[in-house]
Design a protein around this nucleic acid. Structure first.
Lengths: 235, 235
DNA sequence: CGTCGTATTGAGGAGGCTCAACTAAGGTGG
DNA sequence: CCACCTTAGTTGAGCCTCCTCAATACGACG
């Protein structure tokens, strides 16, 4: 199937048989979604929508990385999530978006107007089920992140983040030692619930201990995977 | 409708008209769910299920409070969520539960076997849509909690928690000053990502500042709502 | 090659964690 | 019914980590 149609996968609820593959959209379902939506190509730094604005669409990421965040009264920004290929975002509450979403890299999105999507998934229960599974997965991801920011140690948090990024990248490319980090250090800090400085020091600590090297600001290389995994798991 | 059938509500995606009411299950839907599931009454402290065990059911809370948590290697417990009336839990990944769930108060649950529920919601798209909305709401709740544990100040976190508990209780009862806290201090501490000691000190600080009084360990009374709201909102 | 925003490094201080002792409450059996 | 025991919660002291502020270094972009 051509890559221009929206696509996502999700981890199934049940374990059917021994092998568990992610649940994929069928070609037909992708066609249908492509029909009701339109494709969007946006340069980096574009704001897709801002919190509290009228919500009329859900988005599926075809390619690229985005961040979902909330501005706090103090001027700090609380990051709700980092969003990757095949993720869904824009689930609104009472017709308003709750977060702002901004592109970190250039992105390709599929915009699905709620006015069309809701009737569609109410007709097509199988398609809706894919959405249900995907939202459930996002919920689990969110809970994992709650555990992450609940940790006290900066190094462990960064390790957890790197393992997470590795997981995302690994799906796409074979190489699992080089981890591209498209987002800024500030974004990482916000994601981890740390200050920029603490994040920077944590990165240096990992490097000093020979676990990870940072070839550039946007490329990490895992040297000692077991140690990193151990740091990420601990606590 | 009799209270023995499972029930839940959720906040709609769209704003239809000016007034936005929560989306409720219809009587018919409750009937259908009641038919495929069975009712469960459990005393306090019962473990409904443990992490990594085989998942075969989703649960709807008819009455009572439960906690969902994960045991960490260090022996600490990371709380994933507190669960209240009309909440849903037990969404599994590949046939395994990810968290453990334990009753805090005596609870009444509706157990819905996945083997029956999945075919049902694949037939009944309207019913599935209610589940989709509910899971989405849980996702938002989880994101809010991520922001909560990301805060640095213990007092603010506790304030946020109290406002949250107020919201839950307010729905059921009119009184919005008395807040029952059925869970232990340890549970609150786990939920806030604080130590027991810090939680205790934060409670004392709120009391000293005349914002909240703790009549007993399980009953808080809000004295100065605006101040509490301000503390909860700030950051 | 200069400029501006981003990132790193350093020093000092605040807040929460840990450890330890003490107190309160709940449950049990005589 | 009360004394005891066990568990949960509070209080205090010291330490550790991260935050804040400030200065410097880096790097992307014009």
């Amino acid at each position: 199937m051509h890559d221009s149609t929206p696509h996502f996968d999700s981890i199934p609820f049940l374990n059917t048989g021994e092998i568990t593959e992610p649940t994929l959209l069928t070609d037909d379902q992708r066609e249908v979604l492509a029909r009701i939506g339109k494709r969007l190509k946006l340069p980096a730094r574009t704001t897709v929508y801002s919190e509290r604005t009228r919500a009329d669409s859900v988005f599926v990421i075809v390619e690229g990385v985005l961040k979902s965040y909330r501005e706090l009264p103090s001027g700090k920004r609380a990051m709700s999530a980092l969003l990757f290929r095949h993720d869904i975002f824009g689930l609104a509450e009472r017709g308003r978006y709750l977060n702002s979403v901004q592109a970190i890299t250039p992105v390709t999105l599929h915009q699905l107007p709620l006015a069309d999507l809701i009737p569609l998934i109410k007709r097509d229960a199988e398609l809706q089920f894919k959405f249900l599974a995907k939202v459930t997965q996002a919920l689990r991801e969110s809970q994992r992140r709650t555990i992450l920011v609940g940790r006290r140690d900066a190094v462990g948090r960064l390790a957890m983040f790197l393992m997470m990024m590795r997981g995302h990248h690994q799906l796409a490319v074979g190489n699992d030692r080089d981890i591209p980090l498209p987002m800024s250090r500030t974004d990482i800090a916000d994601f981890l619930g740390l200050s920029r400085e603490a994040t920077s020091r944590a990165a240096k600590a990992l490097q000093r201990r020979g676990i990870v090297t940072f070839a550039s600001r946007h490329l990490a290389r895992i040297v000692d995977t077991p140690s990193l995994a151990k740091l990420a798991a601990a606590v």
